[in-house]
Design a protein around this nucleic acid. Structure first.
Length: 231
DNA sequence: AGTATGATTTCCT
DNA sequence: GGAAATCATACTA
């Protein structure tokens, strides 16, 4: 069976560990076919992996395995869905985050799409992001790219292996793949599970969480002890 | 240029 | 009640 490089990436691509899928997605194209005339395309330049062995994961604490029962509660339950499904959730009450579910159905895992480089439909992206000052700020962050692409709750649990929203093959990236700690989390900050294309201007500007945690410790060093639990 | 803060909703303890 | 996989704006220097 030949690999059709012109169509959407199929479920088999996502049917493995998030730590493999996350770097493999770099250089792939995120495509949203809004309607017959409108197609928004971006090149993936930054991803993060989230796995079952991960305290920062939304599925953390949900029982996983053939003998244990999976308790279907909370948003994390949707991370046990089939590979290639979308996991879209609201972050800080305002911004939609786009994730692709990885691993076979029944095993939780996902990859967060953190930044893309605009390839097509740039005018449509500006319409959806009126505050963007330039092409870079259009899609250089996970909340920014979902705004630019018009991705929200309606895409949650939908398949990303067929239109309207899907990934496609692209040219192999010329940039080197680099890793770091993930951004914006407070648990499992030492996992180097963020992947990005070195030097690409669309990579988000956030501080990796291990660096942020170190800076916090530095700032609080020598200060009087924080009073806690004064209910 | 770097740092701080408000917005706003869902989930968890 | 508080934190959360963020972003835009208003500060300070």
């Amino acid at each position: 069976m030949r690999d059709d490089r012109s169509g959407p990436l199929q479920a088999a691509f996502f049917d493995r560990n998030a730590l493999e899928v996350a770097p493999a997605l770099l250089g792939k194209l995120l495509v949203h076919e809004i309607d017959a005339e409108t197609k928004i395309v971006g090149r993936v330049v930054e991803t993060e992996a989230y796995t079952g062995d991960d305290a920062a994961f939304h599925a953390w604490g949900i029982i996983d395995g053939p003998t244990g029962s999976v308790v279907p509660s909370g948003r994390g339950y949707d991370l046990f869905a089939p590979p290639g499904n979308a996991y879209v959730y609201l972050c800080y009450g305002m911004y939609w985050m786009l994730n692709v579910v990885t691993e076979r159905e029944g095993v939780a895992g996902c990859v967060l799409i953190r930044a893309v480089e605009p390839i097509a439909g740039i005018n449509e992206m500006y319409e959806r992001r009126p505050t963007a000052a330039n092409d870079i700020s259009l899609t250089d962050g996970p909340g920014k790219l979902t705004m630019a692409f018009g991705i929200d709750k309606d895409h949650h649990k939908q398949s990303l292996c067929s239109p309207p929203l899907y990934f496609a093959h692209g040219p192999p990236p010329a940039e080197a793949i680099r890793t770091s700690s993930r951004i914006g989390i407070t648990r499992a900050v030492d996992h180097q599970w963020r992947y990005f294309l070195e030097g690409n201007p669309w990579v988000s500007k956030g501080t990796p969480s291990d660096v942020a945690a170190e800076r916090r410790r530095e700032r609080h060093r020598g200060r009087p002890k924080r009073r806690r639990n004064s209910s």
